[in-house]
Design a binder for these strands. Structure first.
Lengths: 146, 146
DNA sequence: GTTTACCTTTACGTTAACGTAAACCTGGGT
DNA sequence: ACCCAGGTTTACGTTAACGTAAAGGTAAAC
């Protein structure tokens, strides 16, 4: 992937602010806020903002970061990691170290997630067990799953 | 696992507030804050708080939640899910639905994590590539990895 | 021409999760 | 007796990430 600019593709669609707001289920206020923080820089036709597919991708990355509990600053950092920018060796070394740090943290998160997943699965199992003892017919009220 | 009470084991160790603060690298202020929000309820010897292994476990769960980007309220919810409490069929059904909802969200998070992991791995690879072009000797300055 | 549906900026309000400071108690060591 | 390293409560301060008006511009629809 990593086509963050989207310039190579023939895709030249644009989006209004509320297009994106609808698609990702956030408010326009939030999107403008991300712009204030320098994370998205849409063009303007007169006053109104015009978003390219690249802007859309950035927004998607921001929201993915949020779902993982990142702050906006952290997400901005990560997004910058995707597009090197600096070709200086010193900068590249620093960036690689940053990326590895972040990956280590993701590994820790992954582990936390797995453990919590298993724990919840266990809890669900025990709940179902109790439910069957108490009211065997009630289980039908659940979505067909598992 | 799921030994949230810890009552069955012979473990009757106790911890002071700064014991836990040191172990988990949080401030005592934070721990007291979690108590204010009703998430931990240590006993008292006089004025001072005394924490049992069960309390320690709860704190651990809270911090794991934080690492995954949960709010304290969400963590409290999940911790409550671990210990049924209500044996009423209606309550159990609600709880099971809540657990499944949460697990669905975790699944989404898991996916986000995997994608971000792959993206970062890609970025790292490209960085290394550029680094080798620009300054082939500089790579030695990185930790031995990969 | 005026309502409707968008868009804009500016600015104050809000919530969560603590940080930080002040002022105090308390048991053990010298 | 006194200090010191722990503990305590109370309370105000802070930051992030928006929410929520207020007040207005613009273009198409009726």
């Amino acid at each position: 992937m990593s086509d963050i600019t989207g310039e190579a593709s023939a895709e030249s669609r644009t989006y209004s602010i509320s297009d994106l707001a609808r698609e990702f289920d956030v408010t326009t206020r939030a999107i403008r806020f991300y712009e204030d923080k320098g994370m998205i820089s849409p063009e303007r036709r007169g006053q109104t903002r015009i978003y390219t597919p690249a802007d859309r991708t950035k927004l998607k990355l921001i929201l993915r970061g949020k779902r993982l509990g990142l702050t906006l600053d952290e997400s901005r950092d990560i997004i910058e990691m995707y597009s090197p920018g600096e070709s200086n060796a010193e900068q590249l070394l620093k960036l690689i170290r940053k990326i590895r740090e972040r990956r280590d943290y993701l590994t820790q998160q992954m582990h936390d997630l797995e453990v919590m997943m298993v724990d919840l699965q266990e809890s669900e199992r025990r709940c179902l067990e109790t439910l069957r003892e108490v009211a065997p017919e009630a289980e039908a009220k659940l979505e067909p799953q598992d």
